[in-house]
């Protein structure tokens, strides 16, 4: 019970706050708000997604209005304002990737997982997203796992391997 409450609580862990402090230190003392993008990522990493309450907690910590932090969270595509599966797969389907199978890779994942873009498997394991150019088009098809891990040359065999690896 306690544990679950921790997960739901918008308060950030001391580790996360320490990481945010490190970000704040990069900017002039009167420009704390500059750290909001990194702070929201740190919060998302801890909580799995960004609830309004979590966003407000980040805003409070940085001394900015919650609405300003919410605007940022909703402007940038990689913030998740809804719960996502344990593994969020984002497949690039932009033209350079599509020429080398980006769209086909997305179709393949859809079929394997039985979900469409912006859906989560019933077991809560996978969420599938359509991504735009990730600046890695020479490695097409490419996909991101949980925003931070880029997987290159994702042909059917590699996709099978990746899905099997996600436990």
């Amino acid at each position: 019970m306690n544990n679950q409450n921790d997960m739901l609580s918008p308060e950030l862990s001391p580790e996360s706050l320490k990481k945010i402090d490190r970000e704040v230190a990069k900017y002039p003392a009167d420009q704390k708000q500059s750290a909001v993008m990194a702070a929201l990522v740190i919060a998302q990493d801890e909580k799995g997604w960004l609830s309004k309450e979590t966003i407000a907690a980040v805003a409070g910590y940085l001394g900015m209005p919650p609405i300003a932090a919410y605007e940022v969270a909703s402007f940038y595509n990689m913030y998740d304002l809804q719960p996502v599966g344990k593994y969020k797969l984002t497949v690039c389907t932009n033209l350079p990737c599509a020429l080398s199978g980006g769209v086909h890779a997305a179709d393949y994942v859809k079929e394997k997982l039985g979900i469409d873009f912006n859906e989560t498997t019933p077991d809560g394991k996978f969420t599938l997203k359509e991504g735009e150019c990730m600046g890695a088009c020479g490695d097409a098809p490419v996909m991101l796992v949980n925003n931070k891990r880029m997987c290159s040359f994702m042909l059917p065999e590699q996709i099978d391997k990746l899905l099997a690896e996600c436990k």
């Binding site: 990069k26 420009q31 500059s34 750290a35 940085l62 402007f75 991504g131």
Partner: peptide
């Protein structure tokens, strides 16, 4: 010198959108 990361908005490649983004706003 410090590093600042984006989080998925092509428009931040435009230089003034990018500056807004470093300031912690919509790009």
């Amino acid at each position: 010198l410090f590093a600042h990361h984006g989080w998925g908005a092509y428009i931040c490649g435009e230089e003034t959108g990018l500056l807004e983004s470093i300031e912690g706003k919509k790009g």
